[in-house]
């Protein structure tokens, strides 16, 4: 059963259509990547899922029932892109306060906080103030306060920005652990390389609309351009490269990148090269990165969307 279903969600502001008819289904235990350029409508979409905004139109189904912000909010953990903590408050008290606002009792919250602090090497932090922490440290604290109450759905907006590689890996491992434990994670970002690594499923939004949606593997497959990199142990001659099977994209002495013409298969190419007496060392398909797909899909759209008038 999906944990979250969005049906034709719409949210219009005075100057722009922030979310314009988006439907999505997110299964339990998934790590879901919500991708899009700045101003695509990701934050507005997330704010509707977290009950901060009401949609103008459309339905949100949370865990099988119509989303009821007042009661369901305790099952959601949200880390906004712009991190926020009370600077003058002690770290332990702050975590306790935020956990209690999520409905945890004081006792439970204290136990949980101590557990997490130990796990993430934050034991000595309890009586420090946020203003004494570095940016990366407060990031860690923010992450802990987001997941402390064991939410069913965790929404992380750019969780790795500002983290060094060591701490980024630490958080990444925790995200995997949480997903293994049954939590669903929505991971909003415009950093494609992180998505490819972490997410099983992604959706790309732009201009308030969903451009595509699916598993990383499927999407790459759908957007592949039939490019292959072939390398040889003997020297490549001009007469080795025929014109009817493929087009040559790049070439040097021992290597060539080709684009297969429609109607031919990998075997046809291999057969052809073997027939020409070449010794093949490697033969790889070049799949597009999400970054390439993303740019290809987004590049034709005007960036300054916010200045367009709404005609609704």
């Amino acid at each position: 059963m999906p944990i979250l279903e969005l049906q034709n969600l719409r949210k219009y502001f005075a100057t722009q259509k922030a979310v314009d008819d988006i439907s999505l289904t997110i299964e339990k235990g998934q790590i879901f990547g919500l991708l899009g350029p700045n101003g695509a409508g990701k934050t507005t979409l997330i704010r509707m899922i977290t009950g901060i905004f009401y949609p103008d139109q459309g339905e949100i189904i949370f865990d099988g029932k119509k989303f009821d912000p007042l009661n369901d909010i305790v099952h959601i953990g949200y880390m906004p892109e712009e991190r926020g903590l009370y600077k003058k408050m002690k770290i332990g008290e702050q975590a306790l306060y935020l956990a209690q606002l999520k409905g945890l009792s004081k006792h439970d919250a204290t136990t949980k906080i101590k557990e997490w602090f130990t796990r993430l090497d934050m034991d000595s932090w309890w009586n420090k103030k946020v203003e004494d922490l570095s940016k990366g440290m407060s990031q860690k604290l923010q992450f802990v306060t987001t997941v402390l109450h064991n939410p069913k759905l965790i929404i992380l907006d750019e969780p790795f920005s500002g983290l060094d590689p060591v701490n980024a890996n630490l958080i990444k491992d925790e995200i995997y652990n949480l997903a293994k434990g049954g939590a669903t994670i929505i991971f909003s970002t415009h950093r494609m390389e992180q998505v490819e690594e972490i997410c099983d499923h992604i959706a790309l939004v732009n201009k308030g609309q969903k451009m595509l949606d699916g598993t990383v593997k499927d999407i790459k497959h759908n957007y592949k351009e039939n490019l292959f990199r072939v390398s040889f142990s003997n020297k490549l001659m001009a007469e080795h490269l025929a014109i009817h099977l493929f087009q040559v994209k790049e070439k040097n002495e021992h290597e060539v990148v080709i684009k297969l013409d429609p109607g031919y298969t990998n075997n046809d190419v291999l057969e052809y090269f073997i027939h020409k007496g070449l010794h093949i060392e490697s033969f790889n398909e070049i799949l597009p990165s999400l970054n390439d797909i993303f740019i290809r899909l987004v590049e034709d759209t005007p960036a300054a969307r916010q200045f367009q008038q709404v005609t609704a």
């Binding site: 977290t50 009950g51 901060i52 007042l70 909010i73 305790v74 959601i76 949200y78 880390m79 906004p80 712009e82 991190r83 926020g84 903590l85 009370y86 600077k87 935020l98 606002l101 999520k102 923010q142 306060t145």
Partner: peptide, 16 residues
């Protein structure tokens, strides 16, 4: 302070 610290968004995802 809450607005500029950006804590407001964290809190309003827990309370109205």
């Amino acid at each position: 302070e809450e607005k500029t610290n950006r804590i407001a968004e964290v809190i309003v995802s827990s309370v109205k």
